[in-house]
Design a protein around this nucleic acid. Structure first.
Length: 577
RNA sequence: GCCCCCGUAGCUCAACGGAUAGAGCGGCAGCCUUCGAAGCUGAAGAUGGAGGUUCGAUUCCUUCCGGGGGCACCA
């Protein structure tokens, strides 16, 4: 791609220079803008416009075959206008193999583990789980597109005192018939009731702890109950993943493990940690590790005073297991910002273990991909305990209901099954895009109308644009080969061709920033250009067959890139919506 | 008290140190005999306060104010 080769050639001439290419705010200013002149001028203590001239000359020399013009724009930008022939060549390449477009191969031979979703058993998925699940799924797709070998890791919360609470609640109030009827909501209601009643009856708390202790020590009755709760929950999760269209249902590239899977290694791990002086008994007899050397004020607790293990210890065991998988270069944890401290502690512990030789020397890069909470309309966080969370299933039902009305209205001739299927795709697009277009770090306020909006800056808008482009391409008959591309001279056409070049960069930016909004924003802008294009320029009415053919290629390519970009975001792009 | 996020238009959100701070929703004025109006066009409307670094700050630093989250026996 031009972008990479230009940066490479600049680095060759000025090795230490920070070179960045951006897209100017207005297409009339050029296709790319280079801002290295400011830095170079400072370094060489020369006037910026003079230095810019030197850079411009270097670009003219190095890239004569694809650069049409280089302009100096005050105060010191070096703007580049690409040759039409270059844009046409790139367009024709993208037309030939849209599926490989944007795959840089940057991750070839490297493995990355993306942990996401990670629900707790016995609780229904609510809107809070949505973010991890769709951000993680899309981020995994991004790495996949970059050529990484991606392992999607679903780390199920299936262990801990809370399951002692659930067992205690079930023994006290539970009914097999109710459990059978609608398992997850029923378990959840027991959980909510437990928390409500323990306010009055503090003995419940101890009962829960005791049930968990029994579970941990292998009590067969508790074990059986727990396995039943776990199995029923996983079944429901699988159904939800299918409905969401995320790649967690199973297969070679997916690892589903629970915290319980690490239970048998915890005693050994804890022993290693205390044997190496990483952890020591603290106040009240719990085993803790001092992490003040890492600037973490809160000591990490690894074992409770009653001998039961905690989340951190299990996560550490899991981290060690992941790190031993050959070729793993990175582990991403797509988990809410809420758990920032936990991951700081986890990563510091891994570092300590590395120093003591308890974990492999070249530890993979560890990255907590944090995201803000979904807040209720009152601006406070949802809480399963208080039972005010909006169920994910309700969101999807409502989204599909709204989408179905619109699809039906816009496509009266479609049969019932097609309407239903399309509405499902449209609804998911609305829900997913509404999240992915936002910067992950911000908290988002749950709002039915914003989440389910089918117009404006929305997923369905992108699907609509794709469908219209695909429709034109189909009606006009897209050729086998791109052939000679001539007559693409309208400013809107040039803008589209130029925009197509930036797709790979948008994908790369997502990996670099651990965010999906760069790609979402790119696709929205591309779709905007496309909408303005077919508003202004007719494809099928064009009499010159060569020009008409070139336009069809352009339209089909933009459609394909939209489809591929949406695919990375986990959104389907039907031929018609 | 300490730590992590976030303060941008009436509302919900963009802008990986760059050019005239972009969108959507809502409100206003237009465009369907022509490839799909889930669209397009036009006008109105914003960077919490104070310092600092920089040729250039919504972005980086300091501080204050405001919101959310977290801080060893939950996960």
């Amino acid at each position: 791609m031009f972008r990479d080769s230009l940066i490479a050639s600049m680095r060759k001439r000025w090795p230490d220079l920070h070179v960045e290419l951006s897209v100017p705010p207005d297409p009339s200013l050029g296709d790319y803008s280079l801002n290295a002149a400011f830095a170079l001028a400072k370094k060489e203590r020369r006037p910026v416009l003079q230095v810019a001239e030197v850079l411009a000359e270097a670009i003219r020399e190095d890239h004569a075959t694809c650069v049409k013009e280089v302009r100096i724009v005050p105060p010191g930008f070096v703007n580049i206008v690409l040759q039409e022939s270059y844009l046409q060549r790139k367009l024709s390449e993208a037309y030939r193999s849209p599926d490989r477009y944007g795959s840089s191969g940057a991750g070839k031979g490297r493995k990355v583990i993306v942990e996401y979703s990670s629900p707790n058993i016995a609780k229904s998925m609510h809107v809070g789980h949505l973010r991890s699940t769709i951000i993680g799924d899309a981020l995994a797709n991004v790495y996949d597109a970059l050529g990484y070998d991606v392992i999607r890791w679903n780390y199920i919360g299936d262990w801990g005192t809370q399951f002692g609470n659930l067992i205690a609640a079930y023994k006290k109030w539970g009914s097999e018939a109710e459990l059978e009827k609608d398992p997850v909501p029923y378990m959840e209601s027991l959980y909510v009731r437990f928390h409500a009643e323990k306010e009055q009856d503090p003995a419940l708390e101890d009962a829960g702890r005791e049930e968990f202790r029994k579970l941990e020590s292998g009590d067969s009755e508790n074990r059986k109950l727990w396995e039943r709760f776990r199995g029923l929950s996983l079944e429901r999760f699988s159904m939800m993943y299918g409905r969401l269209g995320v790649a967690l249902a199973g297969g070679d590239a997916v690892t589903t493990k629970g915290e319980s899977d690490y239970e048998d290694r915890l005693a050994g791990l804890v022993e290693e940690l205390s044997g190496n002086g990483i952890a020591a008994p603290g106040e009240g007899g719990a085993l803790v590790a001092d992490l003040s050397g890492f600037g973490i004020a809160t000591a990490a607790m690894l074992r409770k005073s009653d001998g039961a293990t905690v989340y951190l210890t299990r996560d550490l065991a899991s981290l060690r297991e992941r790190a031993t998988i050959a070729g793993v270069a990175k582990i991403l944890y797509v988990v809410a910002n809420q758990q920032a401290l936990h991951f700081e502690q986890l990563f510091a512990m891994a570092e300590l273990m590395k120093q003591k030789g308890l974990i492999r020397e070249n530890l993979p890069e560890l990255n907590h991909v944090k995201f803000g909470l979904v807040l209720g309309a009152d601006g406070k966080k949802f809480s399963t305990r208080e039972g005010n969370a909006v169920a994910l299933a309700d969101v999807l039902n409502e989204a599909e209901h709204r989408a179905e009305n619109v699809v039906h209205e816009k496509n009266p001739e479609l049969d019932e099954a097609r309407v239903h299927e399309t509405a499902h795709d449209v609804a998911l697009a609305a829900v997913k895009y509404n999240d992915l277009r936002q910067h992950p770090h911000s908290d988002i306020t749950f709002d039915w109308d914003a989440m389910l909006d089918l117009s404006g800056n929305s997923g369905p808008y992108l699907q609509y644009t794709h469908a219209r482009l695909a429709n034109i391409a189909a009606k006009a008959g897209a050729p086998e080969e791109a052939g000679e591309l001539t007559g693409l001279e309208h400013p809107a056409e040039r803008a589209l061709m130029s925009a197509l070049l930036d797709f790979p960069e948008a994908v790369a930016a997502c990996a670099r920033l651990s965010a999906l909004n760069p790609l979402a924003l790119y696709l929205y802008e591309l779709a905007g250009l496309a909408n303005r294009y077919y508003e202004q320029v007719r494809v099928m009415d064009e009499e010159d067959t060569a020009v008409r053919g070139a336009r069809v290629v352009l339209v089909a390519t933009v459609a394909a890139v939209l489809k591929r970009g949406l695919g990375i975001l986990g959104i389907r792009a039907p031929e018609r919506i």
